[in-house]
Simulated assay, not measured.
Amino acid sequence: MKNKLEIFKKAQDLLDEPEVQALLDYCEKLEDELIDLKFEKDKNKQLIMLDMIKEVVKGCNAIEKEQAEHERFGYEAPNYQETISNLKRYILSQCRDNQIYL
């Protein structure tokens, strides 16, 4: 993509025309809106990641609680491999659905 001033490199005198100035101002406004949109998109991904991390922590807390109950009451031990696989599947599906690349 060319810099908007490079377009008028061979016709610098056109930069003084009001219509060209209006066009350049419009381009600048669109660039600002694009930057804002990219920021909002990134911010939304941060919120998605935060939510995903909270869910993982919640899952870890549940496993810790289950382990404590096992030790206290002699229950069957948690299946950590299945839990890890479920957490990994959850994270990868959330990333795929929200186009987050790890």
Rank of each mutant, 00 (worst) to 15 (best):
D25R: 13
L50F: 06
K41I: 10
K9S: 14
H70I: 02
D25P: 10
Q21F: 09
D32V: 11
D32F: 02
L50M: 09
E17D: 14
L30H: 03
K45F: 03
K10H: 05
E31A: 15
Y26S: 15
S85R: 07
D97I: 01
G74C: 04
N3Y: 10
K45Q: 14
V20F: 03
D13N: 08
L23P: 00
M1I: 12
I63C: 01
P78A: 11
S85Q: 08
D16T: 12
Y90N: 07
I91P: 03
E82D: 09
M49H: 02
L5I: 12
H70Y: 03
L37E: 15
C27D: 12
S93Y: 02
D16V: 08
K41S: 12
V56H: 01
L23A: 15
G59S: 07
K4T: 12
N44G: 05
D42S: 14
D16C: 05
D97G: 00
I91F: 06
P78D: 08
A68V: 02
Q81N: 05
D25E: 15
S85G: 03
N79L: 04
E69T: 11
D36T: 04
K4H: 08
D97K: 00
K29T: 14
K38Y: 07
K54M: 10
G74F: 05
E19P: 01
K43P: 00
P18C: 12
K65E: 05
I53Q: 10
L92Q: 12
Q94E: 15
L5K: 09
A77G: 02
E17Y: 08
Y101N: 13
F39P: 00
C27R: 07
H70D: 03
E33D: 15
I53C: 07
K9N: 10
K58M: 01
D42F: 02
L102R: 13
G59V: 01
N44Q: 13
E17C: 06
D25M: 14
E69G: 04
I7V: 15
Y90T: 04
Q12F: 09
T83N: 08
Y26A: 15
Y75V: 01
E55S: 09
Q81R: 11
K2V: 04
Q81W: 06
E17F: 07
E33K: 13
K10E: 12
E40P: 00
M49P: 00
L30W: 00
L87N: 09
T83H: 11
L50T: 13
T83G: 07
V20P: 07
Y101H: 12
A68K: 13
V20L: 10
E71W: 00
L30N: 11
F8D: 04
Q67Y: 05
N61I: 01
K45W: 01
Q21K: 15
L87Y: 11
L92S: 04
D36R: 08
I53T: 11
